[in-house]
Structure formats: structure tokens, C-alpha cells
């Protein structure tokens, strides 16, 4: 990965995208907030996929983050956006810490199905809990930032946009550094042959667990963003179709580029929004054709649009097989 961008360049890129929000039309701001939030959780799936495991139940941590933030906000009136992100990440991370070590012993389809099952158990419990509004969920107030409350809709949208882009951007930079680190390479090795990794003196379970917790933290923070953007939470956050959508974003993006996750997430939101406006009866079909198109013509994801050239010169295709595996598993 000698050709990778320097972290400072990436920070400049995040700052640029944040400032771009001043020029964007208002409706794109909330769309981009949701896209950034989805990108964050999909990034977690990509992190985990490097160990060869795909989680179909990220909705569990997404909902845990969302409900955690919502309950604390309603009980203690804590509305600060940054604090809510931290709470969401902590809720997701704690749950990941409990679940991760158990689930790390499984791999492949068993891993995927177990994560799916756990998220559906959580979903079932939420639907039955009438104190939390059951299947209808409940509302929370609008977020503030550092004591400032935003009454102008555009300013409020921009604040959320900025916070979500910056947090997701830094998570992306962190992930890039992680991928290039010793630990990140060990994760790849676990996917290739976990027995050999164990003989080298590294615990494969530990590697998977740590990656699982990272994915859970990202999912929890993402749940906090989704909650802040829509001010409402319901058990749908934990439903399997929600989790499936995040896996789709990851498949769409491929695992070659962190930036691709953001592009894929934004493209998916745009296609969904415009197809539902212009083709209200067949928007799901359009969405499906779009996904099929990307899978057929860009099997390594949207990232291969700009990673391709660079890769030709590079001799080691370290990340390449993962894309195929993620695609096959879903």
C-alpha cells in the first residue's frame, strides 16, 4: 500500500467535504447525513470482513446505540450531538465486547447466522416492550452542539452533516491506518489460514473479537447518527432487512477503498430517493437493478473504479480476494 494517501491529505479531504456542505442544497444535507451514518456501519462490516467473517446482524449494535442514546436523552435531557455519538459508540462497543468473544469461535455462515439471530432476538424483545413504544417506537428532541441549539432548519441540518462527516471521516482514516498496521495484516492472515496464525503465536479469536468490537463501536455511533437525523427510533433499527442494507453498502463499495464506502452509501441513497419520487410503484425494482448492475459490472465494488489503475502496477493484490468473498457470502 505504498501508493496510499497520507493521513494529513485525508484529513484535508474530510475538512473539504465538510465545508462543501455550506454550498449543498438543504435536502442533500440530511441525505448525506444518513449516507455518512450508513457508511460508518458499512465500514465496520468491511473491517470485520477482513477476518473472513460477514456480520448479518449489525442492526443489533445499530439499535443498541440508537436506543441507548434515545433513552439517556429522554431521561436526563442530554442532547449534545458529540456526547450522543460517544454514548452510541459506547453502547455498541460494550455489547460487542460481550457478544464478540462468544461469536468469534464460529466462522463463515455460522458466524453470519448467529449475528443475524442475535439481532432478531433483540428485535423481538423491543417489539414486545410497550414501555419503549413497542413497534411504533418513540421520539427524542433535536440535538444541540456544545450548548448551542439550532432553530433554523438549514443550520441544524448542517450541524448534523458536519458532525457525521467528521466522525465518519476520522473513522475512515482510523480504519485506513488500521488496515496498514501489523494488526490489520494479521486480520487478513486469519482469513487466509487461522491455524497458521495460531502457530505464529497470535490468537485468531482475539483478532476476530477486536475487529468485531471495532465494527460494533462503528455501528453504535452510526445508530446515534440515524437517531439524531430522524428524531425517532423503533425496533426496525434491529430488523434483519436493516442489517442487510448495510451489508449491501459494503458489497457495493468493495473492500479496496475506504472512500468507496462513502461513495457507495451516497449513491444508494440518491438512487433510492429519486426512484421513489419518479417511479413510486417500482422503486424497489430500480434499486434492485442498480445493485445487480454494480455486482455484475463492478464485481470488486465501486472502489474498483479508481483503484484499478493503481493496482495494475502493484504486485501484491492483498485485499482483492475479500471483495469476492464478501460478494459470495451475501
Amino acid at each position: 500500500m505504498k501508493n496510499g494517501l497520507h493521513p494529513l491529505v485525508m484529513i484535508a479531504l474530510v475538512a473539504g467535504v465538510t465545508l462543501l456542505g455550506r454550498a449543498l442544497p438543504t435536502w442533500t444535507l440530511s441525505l448525506a447525513t444518513i449516507a455518512a451514518s450508513n457508511a460508518l456501519i458499512a465500514l465496520g462490516i468491511v473491517v470485520l470482513a477482513r477476518t473472513g467473517n460477514v456480520s448479518f446482524g449489525q442492526g443489533l449494535f445499530f439499535a443498541a446505540g440508537g436506543y441507548g442514546v434515545a433513552l439517556i436523552a429522554n431521561a436526563w435531557g442530554l442532547t449534545d450531538a458529540v456526547a450522543q455519538v460517544i454514548i452510541g459508540a459506547a453502547c455498541g462497543g460494550l455489547l460487542g465486547l460481550i457478544v464478540g468473544p462468544f461469536i468469534a469461535r464460529y466462522s463463515g455462515i455460522f458466524f453470519g447466522m448467529l449475528t443475524l439471530a442475535l439481532s432478531m432476538v433483540f428485535y423481538g424483545a423491543l417489539v414486545k416492550s410497550t414501555a419503549l413504544g413497542g413497534s411504533d417506537g418513540f421520539n427524542v428532541g433535536r440535538p444541540t452542539l456544545l450548548g448551542l441549539s439550532f432553530t433554523d432548519p438549514r443550520e441544524a441540518d448542517f450541524m448534523l452533516y458536519a458532525v457525521s462527516v467528521i466522525v465518519t471521516g476520522f473513522a475512515g482514516i482510523g480504519a485506513t491506518i488500521l488496515f496498514r498496521s501489523e494488526f490489520g495484516l494479521a486480520s487478513l492472515a486469519v482469513r487466509e489460514n487461522n491455524l497458521r496464525v495460531e502457530y505464529l503465536g497470535i490468537s485468531a479469536n482475539r483478532v476476530i473479537s477486536i475487529n468485531f468490537v471495532i465494527a460494533a463501536i462503528f455501528a453504535g455511533a452510526s445508530g446515534a447518527f440515524a437517531l439524531m437525523a430522524q428524531r425517532h427510533i423503533d425496533p426496525q433499527f434491529a430488523y434483519w432487512t436493516t442489517s442487510g442494507e448495510f451489508v449491501f453498502v459494503a458489497v457495493l463499495a468493495g473492500t479496496q477503498s475506504v472512500a468507496a464506502v462513502f461513495v457507495a452509501s451516497m449513491a444508494l441513497e440518491l438512487v433510492r430517493s429519486f426512484s421513489s419520487l419518479y417511479l413510486p410503484n417500482t422503486w424497489q425494482l430500480v434499486l434492485g437493478v442498480f445493485l445487480l448492475g454494480v455486482i455484475l459490472f463492478l464485481p470488486r465494488g465501486i472502489g474498483s473504479l479508481w483503484i484499478r489503475k493503481r493496482r495494475k502496477r502493484s504486485t501484491i493484490a492483498a485485499n482483492a480476494p475479500i471483495a469476492a468473498e464478501t460478494g459470495a457470502a451475501s
Partner: peptide, 11 residues
């Protein structure tokens, strides 16, 4: 789902 509805209402 509600997430999509909130987004589409804004749009």
C-alpha cells in the same frame, strides 16, 4: 420503514 419516510418527507 420510518428512516426512509423521514428522509422522503424532507425531500
Amino acid at each position: 420503514g420510518a428512516t426512509k419516510q423521514v428522509q422522503e418527507l424532507r425531500n
